[in-house]
């Protein structure tokens, strides 16, 4: 199965609008399993209006809770906690200890070493995930509860579900919208991917973040192909990004213009390719054709990974 993951490093470069249009174009060519892996701030559903066929709780990790009736106030937990999660003042008189749930890492050290066995350890319900149907095919997506952690585990779960269901349905393409950044959810979304599509923009931050996310793809040996969105904002920067891609051996998929059709489509909960043709949607269609016909290839320059000191 071919697994495309659309990421960007920098947020707001157009990942989700582009993924939704790809979902539309793929649906005209045999279809794809769709997957929103930005579980923290998912937006793909706003364009694809999925109907939830299944809803599941996502439980992962634990959090410590001090029982004030058993706590002797010895402070062992506060001494051992590496995360600053044990805070003074649990009782009304300001004595004893309490756990700050936002800082608690769920490591169990305080539970293990509490001499009074006053600390409980409860599993956390971190979010919900869904198997849905959209006008472009089946979709797996989720919502992590605000402020929760373990997004990497949720991403891994979604990918596993998406793969299993795609196989059962005979779909040979998995199309995933990823999260910004280069941390745990992005790393989890790249696991097992056959191609990363990197959406960038011709700004200093777009370029900087592209290099870091491209280095991440190389680190995990995933081939990277680049789209330059809003390319006419700065033609010199766009040309520099193209040169960078050539030097690094990343496939260059093409340029998209800065176009208000993206917002117009979003307000109507549609994909740009569902609206009357614009230069943006036409450019996006040819980029999609290029992706469909990309030769499977190894990651760019499978050299030993060396992060640049000043990347």
């Amino acid at each position: 199965m071919r697994e495309l993951v659309i990421i960007s490093g920098k947020g707001g470069t157009g990942k989700t609008s582009i993924t939704a249009a790809f979902a539309h174009l793929a649906s005209l060519q045999g279809g794809a399993m769709l997957c929103d892996l930005d579980v923290d701030a998912p937006d793909l559903h706003l364009l694809l209006s999925p109907e939830h066929n299944e809803e599941h709780a996502f439980r992962s990790g634990f959090e410590a809770v001090i029982d004030p009736a058993l706590c002797t106030g010895c402070g062992t937990c506060a001494e051992l906690c590496r995360f600053g999660a044990v805070r003074p003042g649990q009782g009304d008189d300001g004595t004893g200890w309490r756990i700050d749930a936002l800082r608690c890492e769920g490591c169990k050290v305080c539970v293990q070493f509490c001499p009074a066995q006053a600390i409980g350890f409860t599993e956390k319900h971190c979010g919900q995930w869904y198997a849905s149907g959209t006008r472009f095919g089946p979709m797996i997506h989720a919502q992590l509860f605000p402020g929760e952690e373990n997004s990497g585990r949720l991403v891994a779960l979604l990918k596993k579900e998406a793969r299993t269901r795609a196989e059962a349905l005979g779909l040979s393409l998995l199309l995933c919208d990823g999260a910004p950044g280069i941390g745990c959810p992005v790393i989890a979304s790249l696991s097992g991917a056959s191609q990363a599509v990197l959406v960038t923009e011709p700004t200093p931050s777009g370029r900087h973040d592209l290099e870091r996310v491209a280095d991440l793809c190389r680190h995990f040996r995933i081939p990277a192909a680049v789209i330059i969105n809003k390319s006419d904002l700065n033609l010199q920067n766009s040309a520099d990004i193209e040169q960078y891609c050539q030097e690094q051996g990343h496939t260059l998929l093409g340029r998209l213009p800065h176009d208000e059709v993206v917002v117009r489509a979003m307000v109507q909960a549609k994909c740009v390719t569902e609206l009357p043709a614009t230069p943006f949607s036409e450019a996006l269609r040819s980029i999609w054709e290029r992706i469909v016909h990309l030769e499977p290839k190894a990651a760019a320059r499978p050299v030993l990974f060396q992060p640049k000191p000043n990347a």
Binding site: A41, L144, S151
Partner: peptide, 14 residues
């Protein structure tokens, strides 16, 4: 701060 609303974002604003 980083984008999002999960642990990195909460860590930045807490």
């Amino acid at each position: 701060s980083p984008p999002g609303v999960s642990c990195p974002a909460v860590n930045a604003v807490m």
